[in-house]
């Protein structure tokens, strides 16, 4: 949420940038890849076997719905991987 409205009163955070399917997407140091994607308004980034859209479902590393490729390595759970500045994220879906 917008830090100015956030009741937890966030302090300063370091901006990072991921490259998601060739486009720059801003995030904050310490976020997961899924947090960055959702924060950027992306809800889905994968398709199931029969082509149904998938994104975050369980958020705690159990369901494996949110898999992405990180720096060329496939099948990384986006909700479990901490995003690092400059990480190249490849999804199997075009942005929706």
């Amino acid at each position: 949420m917008n830090p100015a409205d956030d009741p937890v009163r966030p302090g300063p955070a370091t901006a990072i940038e991921l490259v998601v399917d060739g486009r720059a997407v801003p995030g904050l140091a310490g976020q997961t890849v899924a947090g960055v994607l959702l924060g950027a308004g992306r809800r889905t980034w994968r398709s199931s076997r029969s082509g149904r859209p998938r994104g975050v479902f369980c958020g705690i590393g159990v369901c494996h719905d949110c898999l992405v490729a990180v720096n060329g390595v496939d099948d990384v759970r986006a909700c479990q991987r901490r995003a690092a500045d400059g990480d190249v994220i490849t999804t199997t879906d075009e942005p929706r």
């Binding site: 949420m1 830090p3 956030d6 937890v8 966030p10 976020q31 997961t32 899924a34 947090g35 959702l38 924060g39 809800r43 889905t44 859209p53 998938r54 994104g55 975050v56 479902f57 369980c58 958020g59 705690i60 369901c63 909700c79």
Partner: peptide
Amino acid sequence: PGVFTAGAAQALAKAERV
């Protein structure tokens, strides 16, 4: 997309502020 486990909502709120 848009159906989450309640735990996902909790994790994203607490750890991501999303």
